[in-house]
Nucleic acid binder design. Structure first.
Lengths: 112, 112
DNA sequence: TCTTCTCGCAACTATTGGTTGCGTATGACT
DNA sequence: AGTCATACGCAACCAATAGTTGCGAGAAGA
């Protein structure tokens, strides 16, 4: 339904700093490495590196504007990532449910 | 609703190999480092390390049995992880929706 | 012009996911 | 019992990455 799982997308959103960067970009409607680093506990260069990997996997898009480079979230790609998160979650959930039903079944048989 | 986001849990399931290990444990009803490594493209020691971090964050539980150590999924903790995945996904989804509505609103105002 | 700000590049460190090799202990077989 | 096979754990090593600092360059503004 959601296509093959994209490991790059996962590891991109697997990093806590990158998740916070996405949060900030969503909340503030975009931003630069400098403005983002002011609200994060890491340096501007660290943020720039993260923006680089987010850009490479397509979750954000950076456009140079004068002496600064503004980054914005790619909504389509983020929606894709969200779909994959919920998809994997649903798969595990289903397996957990099946295991629970099976173990209950076994218990029932033992008691009879 | 789901409590604070647990970065350790996230980075635990952020690794593709660890996700596959969880898949295999769920599908096979547990396993050992050796049996898992037979179905994975990495060595037994790599799997053992991953099982170590999964154990530390509580997603699996290893019990020594004779000369082997069997690992099983902690269903409660995995359910917690799934809840966090879907929670973050839902948050992003909501923000995406809000942004879309706002941008549509702005477009509407421009046209009038 | 001169200053200031933001960016990008380079060097360096720590952590982590991966490997191989080896020693040890437990289970199995004769 | 004695031996063989197997599963594990530990250590050393390598590559990639998340982080740091320092510096040079280019655009904006006084």
């Amino acid at each position: 339904m959601t296509g093959p799982i994209d490991d790059e997308l996962w590891s991109a959103v697997g990093d806590p700093t990158r998740r916070r960067i996405l949060d900030l970009l969503l909340a503030g409607g975009g931003g630069t490495a400098t403005t983002l680093s002011e609200r994060l506990p890491v340096s501007r260069q660290a943020v720039a590196k993260h923006l680089g990997v987010l850009d490479r996997v397509g979750l954000v898009h950076g456009t140079p504007s004068g002496r600064e480079r503004r980054y914005d979230v790619d909504e389509t790609q983020l929606a894709r990532a969200v779909a994959q998160l919920t998809s994997v979650g649903a798969t595990w959930d289903a397996r957990l449910g099946r295991i629970k039903r099976i173990s209950e079944e076994i218990q029932r048989r033992r008691q009879s």
